[in-house]
Deep mutational scan, measured.
Amino acid sequence: KKYAKSKYDFVARNNSELSVLKDDILEILDDRKQWWKVRNASGDSGFVPNNILDIVRP
């Protein structure tokens, strides 16, 4: 599994996007496009722009 940390707050604008808060740790589900599909600690998933994410190295 790959993880990323959010650098900023992001508010979803539709139901395919995921609202995240700065410093959230997110599991990366799909990173093939500019919007990555991620899952948060609550189990919710959706798309966020990859420019707000930093890859977390294990």
Score class of each variant (00 low, 15 high):
17 E>I: 02
14 N>D: 05
41 A>S: 14
24 D>W: 02
36 W>T: 14
57 R>Q: 13
9 D>Q: 07
5 K>A: 04
11 V>T: 09
28 I>P: 01
58 P>C: 13
36 W>H: 04
34 Q>T: 11
52 I>E: 02
19 S>H: 06
43 G>M: 07
10 F>M: 00
22 K>C: 08
30 D>W: 05
50 N>D: 14
56 V>K: 10
49 P>N: 05
14 N>Q: 15
29 L>W: 07
6 S>V: 11
25 I>F: 15
18 L>I: 14
52 I>F: 04
50 N>I: 11
36 W>G: 02
8 Y>F: 11
11 V>Y: 07
14 N>C: 05
24 D>I: 01
6 S>M: 04
23 D>V: 01
25 I>R: 12
37 K>W: 08
34 Q>I: 12
8 Y>V: 12
25 I>D: 07
20 V>T: 10
8 Y>P: 01
48 V>Y: 00
17 E>Q: 12
26 L>F: 04
12 A>D: 02
10 F>W: 05
31 D>Q: 10
47 F>Y: 03
9 D>I: 08
37 K>R: 09
19 S>G: 09
17 E>T: 06
54 D>F: 13
56 V>M: 13
27 E>N: 03
7 K>P: 00
15 N>I: 06
16 S>N: 15
30 D>P: 02
55 I>A: 12
2 K>S: 05
40 N>T: 14
8 Y>K: 15
47 F>Q: 03
55 I>Y: 10
24 D>Y: 00
43 G>A: 05
14 N>H: 02
9 D>A: 08
20 V>F: 03
10 F>C: 03
53 L>W: 03
54 D>A: 12
40 N>C: 06
44 D>Q: 14
15 N>S: 12
19 S>C: 07
25 I>K: 11
2 K>V: 05
55 I>E: 10
8 Y>D: 15
57 R>N: 15
51 N>L: 08
23 D>M: 06
29 L>H: 02
42 S>G: 14
45 S>Y: 15
16 S>Y: 14
11 V>K: 10
32 R>W: 05
7 K>F: 12
38 V>M: 08
58 P>V: 06
50 N>Q: 10
49 P>K: 04
20 V>Y: 01
2 K>Q: 08
38 V>T: 03
17 E>K: 04
38 V>N: 01
20 V>W: 00
48 V>G: 00
13 R>W: 03
32 R>Y: 11
50 N>S: 10
9 D>W: 03
52 I>R: 03
19 S>N: 11
17 E>Y: 04
58 P>Y: 15
29 L>N: 03
26 L>V: 12
37 K>S: 10
21 L>P: 07
48 V>Q: 01
33 K>W: 08
43 G>N: 08
31 D>I: 05
52 I>P: 01
57 R>G: 12
48 V>H: 01
10 F>G: 01
18 L>F: 05
41 A>V: 13
2 K>D: 04
50 N>M: 11
38 V>E: 01
37 K>G: 06
50 N>Y: 09
45 S>E: 11
4 A>W: 07
31 D>Y: 07
1 K>G: 04
5 K>H: 05
17 E>P: 02
15 N>F: 08
18 L>Y: 01
8 Y>C: 15
43 G>W: 05
24 D>L: 01
38 V>P: 00
15 N>M: 11
25 I>S: 06
6 S>Y: 00
26 L>M: 09
28 I>C: 05
46 G>S: 01
44 D>V: 13
30 D>R: 03
23 D>P: 01
20 V>A: 04
25 I>Q: 11
44 D>S: 14
19 S>D: 09
46 G>L: 01
40 N>D: 10
41 A>N: 12
27 E>T: 06
55 I>K: 14
40 N>K: 12
56 V>N: 15
20 V>K: 00
53 L>E: 02
11 V>Q: 09
4 A>N: 03
13 R>I: 08
39 R>S: 05
47 F>S: 12
3 Y>Q: 04
31 D>L: 06
7 K>S: 07
13 R>P: 04
21 L>Q: 15
46 G>H: 01
43 G>S: 06
6 S>R: 00
23 D>S: 10
39 R>I: 06
21 L>R: 13
34 Q>P: 14
40 N>W: 00
4 A>K: 03
16 S>G: 12
6 S>E: 01
53 L>Q: 01
52 I>S: 04
14 N>T: 15
15 N>Y: 15
16 S>P: 07
56 V>E: 13
24 D>Q: 08
29 L>E: 08
39 R>D: 01
21 L>M: 14
30 D>K: 03
45 S>A: 13
2 K>E: 07
30 D>E: 12
37 K>C: 10
4 A>I: 15
54 D>L: 09
41 A>G: 12
34 Q>D: 14
32 R>A: 14
6 S>F: 00
36 W>Q: 06
21 L>T: 11
44 D>K: 14
22 K>I: 06
5 K>M: 07
45 S>N: 13
57 R>I: 09
54 D>T: 11
53 L>V: 08
22 K>Y: 04
24 D>A: 09
27 E>S: 04
57 R>P: 15
3 Y>M: 08
37 K>N: 09
3 Y>R: 03
53 L>N: 00
36 W>V: 13
26 L>T: 02
56 V>D: 15
3 Y>E: 05
26 L>P: 01
23 D>Q: 09
8 Y>A: 14
25 I>H: 09
20 V>E: 01
51 N>K: 14
38 V>Y: 01
11 V>S: 08
58 P>G: 02
12 A>C: 05
8 Y>L: 13
46 G>Q: 00
7 K>N: 10
52 I>Q: 05
34 Q>E: 13
48 V>L: 09
48 V>E: 00
30 D>V: 07
45 S>M: 11
14 N>I: 08
22 K>V: 07
29 L>V: 13
37 K>M: 11
9 D>S: 08
11 V>F: 08
54 D>W: 07
35 W>N: 12
20 V>C: 15
7 K>I: 09
39 R>K: 15
41 A>H: 12
29 L>G: 01
47 F>R: 04
19 S>K: 06
43 G>I: 00
34 Q>H: 08
3 Y>C: 07
18 L>V: 07
7 K>C: 09
37 K>A: 07
19 S>R: 05
1 K>S: 07
1 K>I: 10
32 R>S: 14
11 V>H: 11
31 D>G: 11
20 V>P: 00
33 K>F: 15
12 A>P: 08
20 V>I: 10
44 D>A: 13
18 L>C: 05
25 I>N: 03
25 I>W: 12
19 S>F: 03
5 K>W: 04
4 A>Q: 02
50 N>K: 14
41 A>T: 14
29 L>A: 04
45 S>R: 13
11 V>N: 11
25 I>P: 08
47 F>D: 03
57 R>W: 06
45 S>Q: 08
2 K>F: 07
36 W>Y: 07
27 E>V: 07
28 I>L: 12
35 W>R: 13
36 W>A: 13
10 F>S: 02
52 I>V: 11
24 D>V: 05
56 V>R: 10
52 I>A: 08
15 N>L: 08
50 N>T: 10
22 K>A: 07
31 D>T: 11
51 N>P: 07
32 R>D: 15
50 N>F: 08
56 V>T: 15
26 L>Q: 01
9 D>E: 09
9 D>K: 09
33 K>L: 14
27 E>A: 05
56 V>H: 15
14 N>Y: 15
34 Q>W: 10
17 E>N: 06
29 L>C: 11
12 A>M: 05
52 I>N: 06
19 S>W: 02
4 A>E: 04
17 E>C: 06
11 V>C: 06
50 N>V: 10
47 F>G: 04
4 A>G: 13
39 R>P: 01
17 E>L: 04
34 Q>K: 11
18 L>K: 01
13 R>V: 08
25 I>A: 07
26 L>Y: 06
5 K>F: 07
6 S>P: 06
19 S>E: 03
2 K>M: 07
49 P>I: 02
11 V>A: 14
9 D>N: 11
33 K>G: 12
29 L>D: 03
9 D>M: 05
40 N>L: 09
56 V>C: 15
18 L>A: 01
2 K>H: 05
38 V>S: 01
55 I>L: 12
7 K>V: 06
3 Y>D: 02
